[in-house]
């Protein structure tokens, strides 16, 4: 069981569905981030999936209630931390990485798996941050066809404090900026998965929230599920695309509510 204070709200869940990411800054033990970053600095080769054996302190991040609260909220109490994980070290002087979606173009609009990106060291804009494009997680776009995009309005560089975990939808468009600093930019990627279909909300759900009428005055500024799912348009895409997004978001929400 996890204390309800760590679970997401209805609005948090709706924003994750619409934007495809959610950031947390767990209150990790003092010195842990530095210890992890220093150990990563000293690694001479990439241990691949064995990164948690090479740096066992990472398990404290996975076990932190703030992290677990997000996972329980979105994947249920039986969520699985998959064996695949990876240390991404962006070396000083390395160039940018082109936009891409991971894996092949068999996209899943259900929230059954997503990534957790842990940054043990502060990431500044010149350190080659991961850059994500909110709202693109439902797009089925072969990576080759993204090659003529460079900067996209609404893209979000993950310029974050040490200890931040960015939960990102598996299919969100992502890349990196160049690292022009003298520091290594570390990121550990974890993959999380649902193990059983949702039978109902596993976050701090308020049933009344679904009965409130859509607020056309505040639109996506309202902390309300209906408003967020209906109006949030992080890139300012066309009406046609936005209507399709709305339909997919509703299917995601219904699935998480145990109706899908």
């Amino acid at each position: 069981m996890i204390d309800a204070q760590y679970l997401l709200s209805d609005a948090d869940v709706a924003r994750f569905i619409a934007q495809g990411y959610y950031l947390v800054e767990p209150a990790l033990p003092e010195g842990l981030n530095e210890e992890i970053a220093n150990r990563l600095d000293e690694l001479e080769e990439n241990p691949g999936d064995a990164i948690t054996e090479a740096v066992p302190e990472l398990r404290q991040v996975l076990d932190h209630p703030t992290v677990r609260g997000v996972l329980v909220s979105l994947l249920g109490a039986g969520y699985e931390v998959q064996s695949h994980r990876h240390w991404h070290c962006k070396q000083p002087g390395s160039g940018h990485m082109q936009w891409h979606q991971d894996s092949t173009n068999s996209r899943d609009v259900r929230i059954d798996r997503f990534l957790g990106l842990f940054y043990p060291r502060e990431v500044t804009a010149d350190m080659g941050p991961t850059v994500i494009v909110p709202g693109t997680q439902f797009r089925n776009a072969p990576t080759d066809r993204m090659a003529t995009y460079t900067n996209i309005r609404g893209q979000v560089p993950l310029v974050v404090k040490a200890g931040t975990v960015a939960f990102t939808h598996y299919d969100i468009w992502h890349g990196t900026a160049a690292n022009r600093s003298s520091a290594k930019r570390h990121m550990i990627k974890f993959l999380f998965r649902r193990t059983a279909p949702s039978e109902g909300p596993t976050w701090n759900h308020d049933p009344a929230s679904l009965n409130r009428p859509t607020n056309w005055n505040q639109k996506d500024g309202a902390e309300d599920v209906n408003n967020i799912l209906t109006f949030l348009n992080p890139l300012g895409v066309s009406q046609s695309d936005h209507y399709k997004e709305r339909a997919i978001r509703r299917r995601c929400w219904d699935q998480l509510m145990g109706k899908g």
Binding site: G95, H96, M97, Q98, W99, A125, D126, G128, P129, V131, T148, Y149, T150, N151, I152, R153, G154, Q155, P157, V159, G175, T176, A177, A178, L235, G236, V237, S238
Partner: peptide, 27 residues
């Protein structure tokens, strides 16, 4: 006349590469 969502500039200069930026976009 519709708003631009993405912009890539390619300059015909040897070695030029368009790159994703983490800075505030000023198009």
């Amino acid at each position: 006349f519709s708003d631009i969502l993405g912009l890539t500039r390619v300059e015909p200069v040897a070695g030029f590469r368009a790159e994703i930026s983490a800075q505030v976009q000023d198009w």
